[in-house]
């Protein structure tokens, strides 16, 4: 009669080995997952800074009246971020880490009340506008919405 159900010794032994393997590798798996997530954040941060720098360079080289509209993402991966720019580059900070994408040196107009360098806030749209004033090229950064 085989109505009560049986566990074979082989099955129990295999189960034991699998549990042992799982417990010993679970930490390394979690470490790898964390590494992948951090790499994704680093990659997105670099990508965003380079995108903004590239847009400024395009507006700069496009000449008087050239403009580009930039839509900032709400966050980087699952982290908040801060992005600001000055005449030498675009700075990004996310999760306590900071990076810079360089631009061709150019004067950037920003509202001085925002502090040193213009901040581009997450989830906002900005216009980058090239205007020639008294022979000097100035990139205006205008908050659209």
């Amino acid at each position: 009669m085989d109505q009560q159900g049986y566990l074979t010794v082989e099955f129990m032994f295999t189960l034991l080995v699998i549990i042992f393997m799982m417990t010993s590798t679970i930490n390394i798996i979690s470490e790898r997952m964390q590494m992948v997530s951090e790499t994704e954040n680093l990659s997105e941060a670099r990508h965003l800074a380079e995108n903004v720098a590239s847009a400024i360079n395009k507006v700069n080289s496009g000449g008087n009246g050239h403009e580009i509209t930039l839509k900032m993402p709400p966050n980087i991966g699952d982290s908040n971020y801060q992005l600001w720019l000055n005449s030498s580059g675009v700075y990004i900070e996310s999760g306590g880490r900071r990076g810079k994408a360089t631009i061709y040196p150019v004067r950037i107009w920003f509202n001085p009340s925002f502090g040193p360098g213009y901040r581009l806030l997450p989830n906002r749209t900005y216009r980058l506008l090239n205007r020639k004033v008294q022979g000097n090229t100035i990139i205006y950064v205008i908050n659209v919405r």
Binding site: M35, E38, T39, L42, S43, A45, R46, I92, E93, S94, G96, R97, R98, G99, K100
Partner: peptide, 11 residues
């Protein structure tokens, strides 16, 4: 090496 490659560092 990823952090070095992307050049995004602690402040």
């Amino acid at each position: 090496s990823n952090m070095n490659s992307f050049a995004i560092y602690p402040e």
